[in-house]
């Protein structure tokens, strides 16, 4: 069992719902994630959302990233611009740009080279021009993009594009990054690239938090330390409702199966359980 501690709240969704007219997409979404600290190790958080198509994962992600306002409820993150009160950082409603967002097409500015895109992502940083350049160059080397720094998105391979899109958001938003189906339609090589990116993000800062969705249950169980199943709940008559909500939460840290290099029997059992939960929702 890996030792860890749970510290301050880093992400809190409170009674979130989204409706368009009469149509409710998601309702009663509540979850809370804390900063996980492992002794002698830099450890970020990886939170997975699994759900069948049309259950509201993308809608929830747009709310978490501040791109859409919820109809009811709040998504709260620590407000790093405020001073701590009683040792705790005050919370604030998430706004556009607080949480990085990478869509499944790994969208980039079509008119900016990799280096220009990363420089633009850091335009609000208080670092000097030289410091920004050093930071970008360091990331480019670490992420294997130094040779592509002067290339435009249409000149990049799929893997290079993914890494640039992720890096751009990391440099802009700080610690949070939401990825909507980052493994969708990727070949085995690019899946490995994204997995490596997850590792790099996770091991670079304690507060770094990746929130992602996928239809690959095994991959979610392998990578996440916290896993949510989103789906249609059943009403009193046992019939499925038509809005998405969180049906199950699996804390893989508490279960002792987070941060493992191998995919063991416990992982397989959990994947099987999640699969059943998905089919029932």
């Amino acid at each position: 069992m890996n030792h860890y501690e749970q510290k301050d709240t880093i992400l809190h969704a409170e009674n979130v719902s989204v409706s368009y007219g009469e149509k409710t997409i998601i309702k009663d979404i509540n979850f809370l994630e804390r900063d996980t600290v492992r002794p002698g190790k830099v450890q970020g958080q990886v939170i997975a959302f699994l759900g069948r198509s049309g259950r509201g994962k993308s809608t929830l992600f747009r709310v978490i990233t501040g791109l859409n306002k919820p109809t009811t409820g709040h998504v709260l993150i620590p407000d790093s611009t405020k001073k701590p009160i009683d040792g705790k950082i005050p919370a604030k409603d998430v706004e556009e740009g607080d949480v990085g967002f990478v869509d499944q097409r790994y969208t980039l500015f079509r008119h900016k080279t990799v280096y220009q895109a990363l420089t633009y992502a850091m335009r609000n940083s208080t670092l000097s021009k030289a410091e920004k350049n050093d930071k970008i160059m360091r990331y480019l080397v670490e992420w294997g993009l130094e040779k592509s720094k002067d290339q435009y998105p249409n000149e990049l391979s799929g893997g290079q594009r993914q890494r640039t899109a992720i890096l751009e958001q990391l440099l802009s938003s700080g610690h949070y990054i939401v990825m909507d189906e980052p493994f969708s339609g990727l070949d085995i090589g690019n899946i490995l690239n994204v997995k490596t990116a997850f590792k790099l993000i996770n091991e670079s800062h304690d507060l770094n938090t990746i929130i992602f969705s996928t239809h690959d249950i095994e991959l979610a169980v392998e990578l996440a330390d916290s896993l949510y199943v989103i789906g249609y709940p059943r009403n009193a008559e046992g019939k499925l409702e038509t809005f998405g909500t969180i049906l199950h939460h699996y804390d893989l840290k508490a279960m002792g199966i987070a941060w493992h290099d191998s995919f063991g029997a416990q992982h397989r059992d959990l994947a099987e359980e999640v699969k059943k939960a998905l089919l029932a929702s």
Partner: peptide, 30 residues
Amino acid sequence: SPQEEIDHARSLKCSRWEVLWEVIVKGRFD
């Protein structure tokens, strides 16, 4: 202009006018 490009700019803390400048004006000059 794809909504993804507009969302991408918004997620990079672009104000609405910056989105217009980057995605529409500069991004579509060709």
